[in-house]
Design a protein around this nucleic acid. Structure first.
Length: 403
DNA sequence: CTAGGGTTAG
């Protein structure tokens, strides 16, 4: 099938769908729109729900230390520290502190490096402070920082990260003209992913088509964005269309593409096809990962097939993949439902070995089940094991038994 | 600077 007929097919799908007006998600619940922090509610009354004084002081110290430490050039390369500090401040809605930290970075020569500037723009975006991101972007020339499509993309991504969805299109359309920058494939990908996040897949496809019309070639990321969006929402046929389009363009799917399709197949109850897809991945030397196995395990759990679910869990282990919390979260309730508490016990022990945060209710269910089948010693061991782990913060108890 | 992902808060 030619690529253009696939395009028509896909477009057709959308023309006939009950296409609705673009739906914008609610704006960020607390987008700081001005440069100043809102005064705390605590001023309105006695010690209420606002940041407690101790926490407030800790955060102030955090900011002070951060600014002090950022005098060191070595420190300024530590992206992770910047990320985690801003994330922490953002969860406490300390936007003026974030501004303080980021503005303090502008006095270092690093700001002439576009990469550094991009990091700061992205930090504002992740904190939900898009207007600050925009301001910094506008200031780059006077800070002697070269401004290319990369910082434009950072600005656009910040817009999406701050969930200022209604601004994305305007930014995409207007900023390049204002500053003589040309959008690239990444710019398009960011806008497409924004539409997908908004659940406006019809707009995503329209934009995808528009992109093609300008002669811009979609890449692997473009396709993965669309594949994930369709398959995740159970629009399997549309996903398959996109997959076919990707093939016709000779873009080789990677693990992300395959996992998206695998999840789509499982959702469609086409588990056997999914197993076939996993085999295809292996043939192509794209090693299935924890998410690939998770898809199959989930499928078999939903199918009530205990043997197959356990089988795929064992295959995951054979391939030396470390299960994550989602594997246990999928399997444990199912094992309890099926009365396989021994296997449940084994999984709990493993999860704890791996220091995973498992769900207390799930573990309690295993404990109760073990007692029900008179495996009192095992139940007791599990209770003690869990309660002894500080990180879990559990306080499990053995259910009463009639002796 | 763009794609998925079962995550603490400090």
């Amino acid at each position: 099938m030619s690529s253009s007929s696939l395009y028509r097919r896909l477009r057709g799908l959308f023309n006939h769908s009950p296409s609705s007006a673009p739906r914008f998600n609610k704006p960020n619940p607390s987008p700081p729109s001005s440069a100043t922090n809102k005064p705390n509610k605590s001023t309105a009354g006695p010690a209420s729900a606002a940041t407690p004084p101790n926490a407030e002081r800790r955060l102030q110290n955090l900011v002070k230390n951060f600014i002090k430490r950022s005098e060191s050039a070595l420190f300024r390369r530590r992206k992770g520290t910047y990320d985690s500090t801003v994330r922490r401040l953002a969860t406490h809605k300390k936007f003026s502190m974030i501004e303080e930290i980021i503005e303090a970075q502008k006095k270092y020569k690093d700001i002439k490096d576009e990469g550094f500037a991009i990091r700061l723009i992205m930090l504002y975006g992740k904190a939900g402070m898009f207007s600050h991101a925009r301001k910094l972007f506008d200031e780059l020339p006077e800070l002697n920082c070269e401004r290319t499509v990369k910082s434009f993309n950072a600005l656009l991504a910040s817009c999406v990260n701050s969930k200022e969805y209604d601004q994305v299109e305007t930014i995409f359309r207007e900023v390049p003209q204002e500053v003589s920058i040309e959008a690239d494939v990444r710019s398009y990908n960011i806008v497409i992913s924004a539409y997908c996040e908004m659940d406006a897949l019809d707009k995503a496809i329209l934009f995808f088509n528009a992109m093609e019309k300008t002669g811009m070639e979609p890449d692997l990321v473009t396709f993965n964005t669309l594949l994930t969006a369709f398959y995740k929402r159970g629009q399997f046929l549309e996903g398959e269309s996109v997959w076919g389009m990707m093939e016709s363009k000779n873009i080789a799917p990677n693990i992300i593409s395959y996992n998206a399709r695998l999840q789509g197949m499982v959702q469609e109850k086409r588990i056997q096809e999914g197993i076939g897809l996993l085999a295809e991945m292996e043939e192509k030397k794209i090693e299935p990962d924890v998410h690939s196995y998770k898809a199959l395990i989930k499928g078999f759990c939903e199918d009530g097939d205990l043997e197959e679910a356990k089988k795929w869990y064992n295959k995951l282990k054979e391939n030396e993949i470390t299960p994550n919390k989602s594997i246990y979260g999928t399997l444990l309730p199912f094992l309890c439902e099926q009365g396989d508490f021994e296997f449940g016990l084994q999984l709990c022990r493993e999860a704890i070995d791996n220091q995973l945060f498992i769900n207390v209710a799930e573990v309690q269910r295993v404990v109760d089940g073990l007692v029900e089948v008179s495996k009192i010693e095992e139940a007791k061991d599990l209770v003690e094991l869990c309660n002894s782990k500080n990180y879990l913060n559990f306080n499990l108890e053995l259910p009463q038994t009639s002796t």
